[in-house]
Design a protein around this nucleic acid. Structure first.
Lengths: 70, 70
DNA sequence: TATTCATGTAAAGCATGCTTTCCATTCAAT
DNA sequence: ATTGAATGGAAAGCATGCTTTACATGAATA
C-alpha cells in the first residue's frame, strides 16, 4: 500500500511531530508511515483522514495483490 | 469502530465462508469482524470494500474517541 | 430423531502496528 | 564552526490482527 501522507502533511505546513501529537501517536509512527515501513491500523487511517478532512482512499492507495498465490 | 459487514454480506446473499475464501482470509476472521471482536487491518478493509464495490467509509464507521485521555 | 449447514466462539501461535528510547543526518541560522 | 530544528531509522517490548484447530449451537430437513 502506498500513501500520500508526506505530501498532504507538507501541503498543510505541519511537522511530523505536531501531526503525531494531533493524532495522539508517536512521531516515529508518522515517519514510518510516510516512509512505508508499515501500514496504519484502520483506526489510525480514519484519524488521519478525518484530520485532513479527506477519505481514507484519498490518502492510502491500495494496490490489488495480483500475485496472491506466492 | 462499528461496521455493516454482516448486513452488506447478507444483502449480497453470500455466506461467511465464501466471502472469506474470496478475500483470502479465514471464516473466523469474517465472523470476528461481524461480531466486533476486532477491527480489520487496513489491507483487509480495502479488500472488503473493493469486493463489494463500496468505500471503506461505507462499511466501517469510525466513532471519534471523545474520551481519549483515559 | 439424526444429519447437515451456517454461524459462534475459544485457545495458542505467529505477524504486524505502535511505543519508548536512542542515535544519526541534514539544513538553516547563528 | 557550532547549534538547533526536523527527519530518518534501529531495537526491544507490548497490543492487536489473523491463522489453524477444535468444539458448540440453532435451524432446516431427510
Amino acid at each position: 500500500m502506498k500513501n500520500k501522507l508526506e505530501e498532504i502533511r507538507k501541503s498543510h505546513g505541519i511537522r511530523q511531530e505536531d501531526l503525531a501529537a494531533a493524532l495522539e501517536v508517536s512521531r516515529q509512527t508518522i515517519g514510518s508511515l510516510e516512509n512505508g515501513r508499515y501500514n496504519p491500523s484502520i483506526l489510525l487511517a480514519f484519524k488521519i483522514a478525518r484530520y485532513f478532512q479527506l477519505s481514507i482512499e484519498d490518502i492510502f492507495i491500495y494496490e490489488e495483490d495480483v500475485n496472491h498465490e506466492q
